[in-house]
Design a protein around this nucleic acid. Structure first.
Lengths: 206, 206
DNA sequence: CTAATTTTGTGAATCATTTCACAAAGCCCA
DNA sequence: TGGGCTTTGTGAAATGATTCACAAAATTAG
């Protein structure tokens, strides 16, 4: 498939969220204009985004809400369950374990690891925290889709390498470092410092 | 000043982080190529990014590490303290309060609010959690730079409106909603669901 | 059934960002 | 001191993303 821009994919996620809202409200069809309004973009943008994947609307009418939602889930690959391991049982890790949106979208945490012996053995939401030294032995033979790094900056690259060695192709990285990984591994960064600095810039240059 | 792209600002933040690493290692000068290598970009990109703000390098030599770091801090507005209020005393909120990177860059949490009466009155890192109904009365007369929303989706827009009414011009939003705010207010979103779905897309379409 | 209206889907045009490529500047070594 | 080497800064070119604008399709009203 033709290369799709990151920004397009992110908007598709947003559209899906809006469609689910509309669905809850019992709205059956929606125009590109209504979607755009809800998402702070333009109707042309919405139609262009969708057009990369097919044509899902009816001229003169708009899009059938449940159908388009289904198509977007398909496009985004949300039909299935993703098995996730969490590296780091700190505060953010614990917030993630409890986050319902995680489970709701089919992302299931199947293992948690930490270096701290004080945390190893603790039970978290039905899972036992394991020592990170057991990473390879515990995950051996299991298929894992996504690794979530919630560790200090210093530990992140080494753990990323180990995840890659285990065959994991997607990493969500909360550590404030730029990870080096092979081309076929996707990394998304959640970097608080970066967001704050972008706000700082915006506040300073107005 | 000419409008600077969001992507440029984010890269400047990254460069600053790398420069700080280099500084720690006692490296005195760095070329655009070395910076690019560290950040996974190109030397032309680095030079172009910097060129929007001036010319900070020496031809044939590169950039003086401490000087460029200083300039970037200036550009990003990191010379001063930012006063931050936290709305939502849940797990993520508590992780943020303890996050040292926050304080280190000059972002000081000066107040925490929550709706839950069970949380109000608790002491967190030297701050007492207040009832969100006291938001206006407690912040009246104080200057606040940044509001951080760590609330359920349903509560976020109303609280954003109240922050805006208090004159706050920058919001960091962890709630999975698209906030509507006036043009002169900057919002940065940290949306976990979006990141996961982008990974899901990447895993699906390879 | 026809005309007016709505809304999609999409090339073409515009706008934005990145990459190229090279002259100018300054370093370093002999 | 001079020549070779390195590296910046920056217009110009290339690439990428968004917006425009309109024909085609479908709806709705009369």
């Amino acid at each position: 498939m033709r290369k799709i821009a990151e920004s397009t994919v992110r908007r598709l996620s947003l559209y899906l969220r809006f469609l689910e809202e509309f669905e809850e409200q019992g709205i059956a069809t929606v125009s590109s204009d209504a979607l755009a309004l809800r998402g702070g973009t333009t109707s042309a943008q919405v139609r262009k985004d969708l057009s990369f994947f097919g044509s899902f609307g009816k001229r003169g009418l708009g899009y059938a809400v449940p159908e388009l939602a289904g198509r977007l889930r398909e496009i985004l690959g949300l039909g299935r369950e993703y098995r996730v391991v969490l590296l780091g049982a700190g505060k953010i890790g614990s917030a993630l374990v409890q986050y319902r949106g995680f489970q709701k979208r089919g992302f299931t945490i199947v293992a948690i690891f930490d270096v701290d012996p004080g945390k190893v053995g603790k039970r978290w939401n039905g899972l036992t925290v394991s020592s990170v030294s057991q990473l390879e032995s515990e995950l051996k033979g299991q298929h894992i889709d996504i690794g979530v790094l919630v560790t200090p900056a210093e530990a992140a690259q080494e753990l990323a390498d180990r995840l890659v060695a285990l065959g994991i192709k997607a990493i969500l990285n909360f550590a404030p470092v730029q990870l080096a990984v092979p081309d076929d591994v996707s990394v998304k960064n959640v970097n608080l410092a970066l967001e704050l600095e972008a706000l700082s810039y915006a506040l300073t240059n107005r």
